[in-house]
Design a protein around this nucleic acid. Structure first.
Length: 321
DNA sequence: TCTCCTCGAGATCT
DNA sequence: CTCGAGGAGA
C-alpha cells in the first residue's frame, strides 16, 4: 500500500497508510483543575480523514462554575447519512443555514483560547479539531487535554461499560438530547464533578489519588479497616506475591483480599515470601514460560525457605470464594 | 527498590 | 489511547 504524506508548516500531520501522527498535539493530563473548557463535537462519522464536523460546542468553566457556552452547527460539503441523522437529530435542513467550517472554526478556537480542554474520550474531538485546524487555518491545535473517560475507567469498576450514556445513568444524570454538542458537554461536566466527588470519598484527597495513579499499583497502598482476623487462615501474617493474570479478579482485588485476611501482599518475590500465587502466564515474552517471580520462588524453595507455590484455584479455596 | 521500556488486550468517540 | 504486567538495569 502506498503511503500518503501530507506536510504542513504548522503542526505536521503525517498520514502514513492508515495511521496519523499529530506531533504537536497537547499532553493528556491526569489532573483536576478548577478552570477549563469542556468540548464536544458532532461529526458525520468516526474517521477524521474522511468525515466532517457538523457541530462545535463548548462550555467555559472558571473556578468550577459555568460562565459561557458556545454551540454552532457547521455546514458540511457532503450530505449526512441517515445513521447520523438518527443519532444526533441533526437534519440537512438545519445544516443548510449553518456556516461552513472555515468560518466557524476560528470562532470556536477563539472561544477555547489556550484553556485545557476537557471531554469524554476527548482524543476523538481533539483529533478532528487538530486536523481541521491544519487543513483550513494552516495552524496547530496544541491545547493540553483531560479525558473524563480515563477517570471513569479508573474509578468505576462495577459497570458493564464506560460509554458516556452508561456513566450518565450510573450517576443518575439527566440528559434530553444525548449526541447533541452542548447537551453532551453538560453531561460531561456533571460527570466530571461526580468523579471528583468519588475520588474525595475513596481517597484522602485528590492529590493522594493522582499520586498513586502515577506510581502505579503498589501493595503498600492497600489498606484494610478490619481489625480482627481469623488467625487460622493460611494467609494470616504471611507474605503473598502474585504472578500472571488472574482469571477471576484483578491483581488489586487479590491484594485487598489478602490484606483483609490479615496477610501481607507483596509486589515481588523475596526471601520473606510465604505464598506465590500463579495466574495465567501464557505470554510469549515470558522465557521458558516462567516469570522472574516464579524462578525466584523455586530458587528459594530449593534453599529450604518456607515458600508455597500455589495455583490460582488453591488461592480461591483458601480465601473461600 | 526504583525508574523506564515493551508488549498485548480492550474500549470509546460519530 | 490507556492500562497492567514482566523485564532490564542502576
Amino acid at each position: 500500500m502506498r503511503s500518503h504524506i501530507q506536510l504542513s508548516s504548522e503542526g505536521a500531520q503525517i498520514v502514513e497508510s492508515n495511521r496519523t501522527i499529530r506531533d504537536k498535539k497537547g499532553d493528556s493530563l491526569l489532573e483536576l483543575p478548577n478552570s477549563f473548557t469542556i468540548i464536544d463535537i458532532e461529526t458525520t462519522g468516526l474517521d477524521p480523514r474522511f468525515d466532517e464536523i457538523i457541530e462545535l460546542s463548548a462550555i467555559r468553566v472558571i473556578n468550577g462554575e459555568e460562565v459561557k457556552t458556545f454551540s454552532e452547527l457547521v455546514k458540511p460539503d457532503y450530505s449526512i447519512s441517515n445513521f447520523i441523522k438518527e443519532l444526533t437529530g441533526i437534519t440537512e435542513e438545519m445544516l443548510s443555514e449553518a456556516d461552513t467550517i472555515d468560518s466557524v472554526l476560528p470562532r470556536y478556537l477563539n472561544f477555547i483560547g489556550d484553556d485545557i480542554v476537557v471531554g469524554y474520550n476527548v482524543h476523538f474531538d481533539v483529533n478532528f479539531i487538530y486536523d481541521n485546524t491544519i487543513k483550513y487555518l494552516n495552524n496547530s491545535f496544541e491545547n493540553n487535554l483531560i479525558d473524563v473517560m480515563r477517570f471513569a475507567k479508573l474509578l468505576i469498576k462495577d459497570s458493564k461499560n464506560h460509554q458516556l450514556k452508561t456513566m450518565a445513568e450510573y450517576f443518575s444524570i439527566d440528559y434530553d438530547n444525548l449526541h447533541r454538542g452542548l447537551e453532551d458537554c453538560k453531561v460531561t461536566f456533571f460527570l466530571f464533578k461526580e468523579l471528583r466527588d468519588t475520588i474525595n470519598e475513596q481517597f484522602k484527597n485528590e492529590t493522594d489519588f493522582l499520586k498513586r495513579q502515577q506510581q502505579g499499583l503498589k501493595s503498600a497502598h492497600i489498606t484494610t479497616d478490619i481489625t480482627e482476623f481469623d488467625e487460622d487462615n493460611p494467609l494470616f501474617q504471611n507474605n503473598c506475591a502474585f504472578t500472571g493474570t488472574l482469571a477471576h479478579m484483578a491483581r488489586k482485588e487479590a491484594y485487598q483480599i489478602v490484606k483483609d485476611l490479615g496477610g501481607k501482599p507483596q509486589d515481588n518475590v523475596t526471601k520473606k515470601t510465604n505464598y506465590l500465587i500463579l495466574g495465567d502466564t501464557d505470554y510469549s515474552k515470558v522465557k521458558d514460560g516462567k516469570s522472574r517471580k516464579l524462578k525466584n520462588a523455586e530458587k528459594y524453595q530449593l534453599e529450604g525457605l518456607d515458600i508455597n507455590i500455589i495455583s490460582e484455584q488453591v488461592f480461591y479455596d483458601i480465601i473461600n470464594v
